Amino acid sequence: MRRALLPIALLLTGVAQADSSLPASPLAYTQLPDPDQEAQAKALMETLRCLVCQGQSIADSDADMAGEMRALVRQRIAAGEPPARVRKWLMERYGDYVTYDPPLSWITAPLWIAPLALLGIGLLIARRLFRRRTA
């Protein structure tokens, strides 16, 4: 029993030590003074994936990296950069995985084609099954 719990205990210990002991960036949790810029930053943050959590946007994640990414977004929006340019910069820096809507390229083509292919295969199987029942 103890041997079975050892990997879980090690995993939980590693997760607890994964957070940085450095203080969070000032803009990680502080809103911009301009409401329009904050709205732009918030909308952009909702479309960006936390690279640590992988299932949350950087707006929802409490991970240190998500806080740093929020601070970067707010800094660039406050400097006057349009959200599309900030998004492009983050994609160049962290890769296409940082966005929930990856652009179509040879690398991401399977993500876009697989659902259509599976739907087509499902329709073919359903068609054959219905033909057998009526015949």
Rank of each mutant, 00 (worst) to 15 (best):
R2A: 10
I125D: 04
Q31W: 01
A16M: 09
D60L: 11
L12V: 10
Q31I: 00
P23S: 12
I8K: 07
D62Q: 13
D60M: 10
T13M: 12
L111F: 11
Q54R: 15
L48N: 06
G120W: 03
A135P: 01
A28W: 02
D34R: 04
S61T: 01
S57A: 14
I58G: 01
P26S: 08
S105C: 04
Q31R: 12
G120M: 13
G55C: 04
P7D: 05
V15N: 04
R93S: 11
M69H: 06
P33D: 09
R132P: 00
R133V: 12
I8N: 01
Y100E: 05
E92L: 10
E81W: 08
L10N: 11
R85V: 15
L123D: 00
E68W: 05
P23C: 01
S57M: 08
A135G: 13
R93L: 14
Q40D: 14
G14Y: 04
D96F: 09
A117C: 05
L10K: 08
V52T: 15
E38F: 02
G122W: 06
P110L: 02
A28N: 02
P82F: 04
G80M: 09
M91I: 10
A126Q: 07
A78P: 01
G67P: 01
D101A: 14
R70E: 00
L6Q: 08
I121S: 09
A39H: 10
M45Q: 15
W106S: 11
T99C: 05
L116A: 13
L27D: 02
G120E: 00
T47S: 15
R76E: 14
D96K: 06
P83G: 04
W89H: 14
L22A: 15
P103Q: 07
A114F: 08
R85H: 10
R3L: 12
A79L: 11
A109G: 01
A63M: 09
A126G: 08
I113Q: 11
D19Q: 14
Y29V: 04
T134M: 10
Y100R: 13
I8W: 10
P82Y: 02
D34H: 04
T13K: 00
G95T: 02
L27W: 04
L22N: 10
E92V: 00
R2L: 14
T99W: 05
A9K: 09
P35I: 04
R76N: 14
L5H: 09
L90I: 03
A28E: 06
I113F: 14
D62F: 05
R128P: 00
I113H: 05
